[in-house]
C-alpha cells in the first residue's frame, strides 16, 4: 500500500488498509521497545515538537519516548511557560515552530479542529494527540492494538464503552476505528452522557450497563470527568459508581474472560474498582506500553522516509 499522509488527524478518513499498516508497523516497534537497548538510528537528525495546550502525562511522555527510541530529537513545549501565556495565537506559535525547522508537530488542544488547523498551515507533519471532543486517534489505535494482541482478530467481537461518552474524544475515535474493523460497539452511560444523537456514529446506545454486558469481549471504562457533576449531568459519584462502575461482581455478567481497558487517568472506585483495575483482566498498563509502540509507528511512517510511499 501507499502511505501518503503528511498528518494523522482522525481515524474517520483512514482506510482499513492504512489502519492495518499502522498496526503491523507497531508490532515491529513493540519488539524494539522491549529490547534492553531500545535505541535506533532511524530518525537521526529529525526533530519532533510536542505542543500540548492541555494537561497530559502519558500521551506527552509516550510521544516523547517514541521519538527518542527512533533516534529523533524531541522537544516539549509546556504552554504555561511559553509565549502562549503572553497571548501568542496558535497560528503564530505554529509558524515559530516551523521556522525552527521541526519535521513533526504533535498537538493537543482543547478546541476541536485545532490539529487540522495546524496541519493546513504547516509543511511539517502533524499528529493529533487529542483535540477537544473531536478525536484522539493514537488512543483508538493503541486500544485496538491491545485488543488484538490479547484476543486476535476483533472482527465480529463485541466492545462495550462505558461512561461519559458525550465529552469523550476517546470514545469517538474508538467508534470509528472499531467499526471500520468490523467490531460491534455499544456505548453505555446515563442518558445525559449518552444522548440519542450519538446513534449517528453507527454504534448501539444503552443506559443499563448490566443488560449489555453479556457477551462483551472488551469492556472499556472512560474517565468520569468530575467537573461534569457540577453542571448537573449526573447526580452523585456514589450513584454513578453504583450504576456504571466496573466491579468484579458486575463483570461476571459478560460470561467470558473479557478484557478491561481504561485510557487513564483512572478515578479509582468511581468508574472502576480497585479490584478490577489491579486484576489480570485489566490491560491498562499494557495499553500504555502499546501506546509508545503505536506512536513510534506513526512517527516512523510520517517522517521516516523522504517521500512517504510504501512499497
Amino acid at each position: 500500500m501507499k502511505w501518503q499522509r503528511k498528518d494523522v488527524l482522525a481515524i474517520e478518513d483512514m482506510s482499513v488498509d492504512e489502519i492495518r499498516h499502522i498496526l503491523h508497523t507497531a508490532k515491529v516497534m513493540k519488539e524494539i521497545l522491549m529490547r534492553p537497548i531500545k535505541k535506533l538510528p532511524t530518525l537521526k537528525g529529525k526533530s519532533v515538537v510536542n505542543l500540548f495546550y492541555e494537561a497530559s502525562t502519558r500521551t506527552r511522555t509516550s510521544f516523547e519516548m517514541a521519538g527518542k527510541v527512533l533516534g529523533a530529537d524531541t522537544t516539549s513545549i509546556a504552554v504555561a511557560q511559553s509565549s502562549v501565556s503572553k497571548g501568542e495565537s496558535l497560528y503564530d506559535t505554529a509558524k515559530t515552530i516551523q521556522a525552527m525547522r521541526a519535521d513533526l508537530v504533535i498537538i493537543r488542544h482543547s478546541s476541536s479542529g485545532s490539529a487540522k488547523f495546524l496541519a493546513d498551515i504547516l509543511d511539517a507533519g502533524v499528529i493529533n494527540a487529542g483535540d477537544g471532543q473531536h478525536a484522539h486517534p493514537t488512543q483508538a489505535l493503541l486500544d485496538i492494538f491491545t485488543m488484538e494482541e490479547q484476543l486476535g482478530d476483533m472482527n465480529g467481537k463485541k466492545v462495550v464503552i462505558v461512561g461519559d461518552v458525550l465529552h469523550s474524544r476517546v470514545a469517538r475515535s474508538n467508534a470509528w476505528c472499531l467499526q471500520k474493523l468490523g467490531v460491534d460497539v455499544t456505548f453505555v452511560g446515563p442518558p445525559t452522557l449518552v444522548p440519542f444523537e450519538m446513534e449517528g456514529l453507527g454504534v448501539k446506545l444503552a443506559h443499563d450497563l448490566d443488560s449489555v454486558l453479556p457477551g462483551a469481549d472488551v469492556v472499556m471504562a472512560l474517565r468520569l470527568q468530575l467537573e461534569r457533576q457540577k453542571s448537573g449531568l449526573f447526580p452523585s459519584l456514589r450513584e454513578y459508581s453504583q450504576l456504571y462502575g466496573l466491579t468484579t461482581e458486575r463483570l461476571k455478567k459478560t460470561e467470558k474472560q473479557s478484557i478491561i481497558l481504561h485510557p487513564g487517568p483512572m478515578n479509582r472506585n468511581v468508574e472502576i474498582s480497585d479490584e478490577v483495575a489491579d486484576s489480570a483482566q485489566a490491560l491498562i498498563e499494557r495499553q500504555v506500553t502499546n501506546g509508545v509502540a503505536i506512536r513510534m509507528a506513526l512517527i516512523y511512517l510520517l517522517i521516516g522516509g523522504s517521500s512517504n510511499v510504501v512499497a
Binding site: E31, G305, S306, V310
Partner: peptide, 13 residues
C-alpha cells in the same frame, strides 16, 4: 531512508 523514494515496510526482527 531519507533519500530513497519508496518508504519501506518494516518487518519483525
Amino acid at each position: 531512508l531519507s533519500t530513497i523514494d519508496i518508504h519501506p515496510v518494516v518487518h519483525e526482527t
